[in-house]
């Protein structure tokens, strides 16, 4: 026993000394960790597990996914990764909603500390229960116009992308819904099924099974294009009947991951290469199509621009709702209208 321990200890020591000698020459030489800021099993989590599994063969290392949810809009996970060295060995898995973290007092950084890679997102749509009296979006809008705040609407949590879509719909059609918040998309959809609320706005990926199964009746897509869904009539775009919505919509999900923007360029290039290959892979494309995700594949400057836009939009919308702790002005976040796309 003693001998065994001695051998073990000495061998560990030797390997340690040797390990010190191997210089940090080429990235990546050890496993990468992707810290997802939302809890396990959610959309951001699944997409991050998917993309990293597809990326890892191109980088020749494992990419381990861990979850570090909590704080305000994912602030715990973001602060955790932000504190680490910018060596590219820790990614942060995030989605569009994290941009509101700063104005809500979650952390003190803006989104420009990240170098994002956007995998994509699923378009939002408005649906009602299959036994609802509403058959078109016009029905709903007319009912609300006739009787303000009579229609109960759920759209995930307060300040989520679905909530922002609901607000944009309300602004564009000049009506006011009675918004009932739920802690996530799944409970919001369940609330329509149980009849607790009248309509729900969440993403197509989250609703598709319930729509195909005849539990939910889709009214309109909140993007410019109509959507075909097997076994169901084509879902029209809300812009067809309410063209003025184009001023406020679409607001698309942006799910992906990021590294710190001060990471070396060689690391960024290596990751971008693997990311593009993964996005192009057959498996990811089929999966995205089957689950109604629209792949974006943005990286570099265009991805940063996208996040800057989302940050501005979320921050100022929440400011208008009076739900911010720190004003976007104090953080130096420009208004959406003043945003310079560089």
């Amino acid at each position: 026993m003693k001998k065994a321990i001695a051998t073990l200890v000495s061998s560990v020591l030797i390997t340690c000394v040797c390990a010190n000698v191997t210089a940090k020459d080429r990235y990546p030489e050890r496993d990468i960790t992707n810290v997802v800021v939302w809890s396990a099993g959610g959309g951001t989590d699944v997409i991050n597990r998917m993309i990293t599994s597809e990326m890892s063969p191109h980088l020749d290392v494992n990419i381990n996914v861990t979850n570090r949810p909590g704080g305000v809009a994912g602030s715990l996970g973001m602060s955790y990764v932000h504190k680490l060295k910018p060596d590219g060995y820790t990614l942060v898995g995030l989605s569009e909603s994290v941009v509101a973290s700063a104005v809500q007092g979650g952390w003190k950084q803006r989104m420009d500390v990240w170098h994002p890679f956007i995998v994509g997102g699923s378009p939002d749509l408005i649906s009602v229960s299959s036994n609802s009296k509403f058959n078109t979006l016009e029905d709903v809008i007319n009912a609300v116009k006739a009787n303000p705040k009579s229609v109960k609407a759920s759209a995930g949590g307060a300040g989520s992308i679905h909530h922002l879509n609901l607000l944009a719909l309300a602004n564009g059609t000049e009506v006011e819904f009675n918004y009932i918040p739920y802690p996530g998309s799944a409970p919001a959809q369940t609330a329509v099924l149980t009849g607790e609320v009248d309509l729900v706005i969440t993403s197509l990926a989250e609703q598709q099974q319930l729509i195909k199964g005849g539990q939910l009746k889709p009214l309109a897509m909140l993007v410019a294009n109509a959507q075909t869904l097997e076994g169901v009539d084509t879902i029209p775009s809300a812009f067809d009947s309410f063209p003025q919505l184009q001023k406020h919509l679409p607001i698309m999900q942006a799910i992906g991951f990021a590294i710190k923007s001060d990471a070396p360029d060689s690391v960024k290039n290596k990751l971008t290469m693997a990311f593009q290959k993964a996005i192009a892979s057959e498996k990811l494309r089929t999966w995205a199509k089957d689950n109604y995700y629209v792949l974006s594949g943005l990286s570099g400057q265009s991805a940063s621009n996208e996040f800057a836009f989302l940050e501005s939009l979320f921050s100022w919308t929440l400011q208008d709702l009076g739900a911010t702790k720190i004003s976007p002005k104090a953080l130096g976040i420009p208004k959406p209208a003043d945003l310079q796309m560089n």
Binding site: C16, A19, N20, T22, R30, T33
Partner: peptide, 19 residues
């Protein structure tokens, strides 16, 4: 599970794994 503080011993342990 990343350990709370990874200093001289844990880092060496991780390096050893890759070696």
């Amino acid at each position: 599970v990343p350990l709370p503080t990874e200093g001289i011993v844990i880092e060496k342990m991780v390096d050893a794994k890759y070696l």
